[in-house]
Nucleic acid binder design. Structure first.
Lengths: 250, 250
DNA sequence: GAGTGGTCTAGACCACGAA
DNA sequence: TCGTGGTCTAGACCACTCG
């Protein structure tokens, strides 16, 4: 039982489990911070850190003067609570992820690409197109642009490699932050062929810029999903929650 | 200058301003926590609270051992960093929001509605349909379902009232948490007429369940946007960031 | 090895909610 | 009024990064 993970994780994990198990029905009040601190033999600050994480995930409310209340947890689909690769996300839903690389092209970065990857205009990049499947069924076309160093690693991978991000991790390339933009796009000829829909068919589009722990951009990607196969979910709250997430800016 | 807002807000605000003003170029390193604490005459904990908020918004990285790095901030579109009403969001972009109520109907909650609003099956609700405009151009159809008490307040409002949420605030009804699901839907006859598109046209759909500070559901809404008029943006990071946001769960 | 962020403690005072 | 969460302090030790 040697635990190398922080205490607040243990506390948060226990509370998540208890909530998931229905020990606190929807609308029930959580124990007070002091009570939890006593129960776990930790300081109140540590308990608050655990609770902040539940709050960020939209599992509980919190306001001054009243105990925290358990929110009726809707089942999560593609939650943005934490950055996760397609493969890891699929597996967490009990689906079997797949992927096949359709094209790998060295190229010079367009102005937009150079901008997103913070490279000089015309710098060398690798463009990779992949079909992603869930249990064998094509659901998404992924077009990623990588800086040269990373692109080389991707280009060397098997075309049927399921998780590029896993492989890149093994080479010391980490994806730790991402900024996503979601809207609707129209299927082009490639999309239509790969997804088996008509050209011009509307697709759910997610564009993503991922960075490593040092803040260096490592990937610029555009994913197009067949409608009905996935949905994205996000939780939100007004300014001034526990431990000061989110500011407000008016 | 009597400030009733917390200290960490002041610190966070200053840092945001400095970053926005380009005082720390993209990739630059922020001052150390101790340095900021000394500079503002506050404790390190307070500085960390401020920095956690920047982290949550995707403005900076943070990892043990190295100074925080400023991320190249992409311009935000419809950011989910903080819960904001359509009207407030539009104004923050310099657009002029508008809205016209098309229909208000008392009804019995369907099973789905009762579920989302945590009401008994068949409870009385109000269903409200509205067209939302940006600078006079229709961009979205909003179908909201309210519990009876709140629905009555909405039903009593002027059909041209721009911000229902603002009015509800004045009546003591607060929206503090929301859970969003984003996908693609197809325009029905109402959508087509109100948005001026063809029936069957693909729309960007956001479904939302909002709750008040006590965790009581106050609104269940389905918004359908004309593609190209708005996009949603979200920021994300892997587990274990400053002040323990997000857990990970494997 | 020095600097830095991550975790944790043990206090304190205040603002707010509920009884 | 009393319990509760929000804010804040002043320390401490450790794990990690970087020169």
């Amino acid at each position: 039982m040697s635990s190398k993970s922080p205490l607040y994780r243990k506390v948060a994990g226990d509370l998540r489990t208890a909530i998931a198990a229905g020990e606190y029905g929807s609308g029930a009040r959580l124990p007070a911070e002091d009570e939890l601190a006593r129960r776990y033999g930790v300081s109140r600050g540590t308990v608050r850190q655990a609770l902040a994480s539940l709050r960020a995930d939209g599992l509980v409310t919190s306001r001054r003067g009243a105990r925290r209340v358990v929110l009726g947890g809707a089942p999560r689909l593609q939650s943005f609570g934490e950055l996760r690769s397609f493969a890891r996300w699929a597996r967490s839903l009990g689906e079997e992820p797949g992927g096949r690389t359709v094209a790998v092209d060295p190229a010079e970065a367009t102005e937009e690409e150079a901008n997103h990857l913070q490279l000089p205009p015309g710098a060398g990049v690798f463009k990779v197109m992949r079909v992603r499947t869930l249990s064998g069924v094509p659901v998404m076309v992924e077009r990623s642009t990588y800086p040269e160093r990373i692109g080389r690693l991707v280009a060397a991978m098997d075309v049927d490699e399921v998780s590029h991000s896993r492989q890149l991790e093994l080479h010391g390339v980490l994806f730790t932050d991402a900024h996503h933009t979601i809207d609707v796009a129209s299927a082009d000829a490639d999309d239509a062929k790969l997804l088996g829909c008509g050209a011009g068919h509307a697709l759910l589009r997610e564009r993503r810029r991922s960075t490593d722990p040092a803040g260096t951009p490592v990937e610029w990607s555009e994913d197009r999903y067949l409608p009905g196969t996935v949905a994205f979910t996000v939780h939100n709250s007004v300014a001034s929650s526990a431990l000061g997430r989110q500011l407000g800016e008016e």
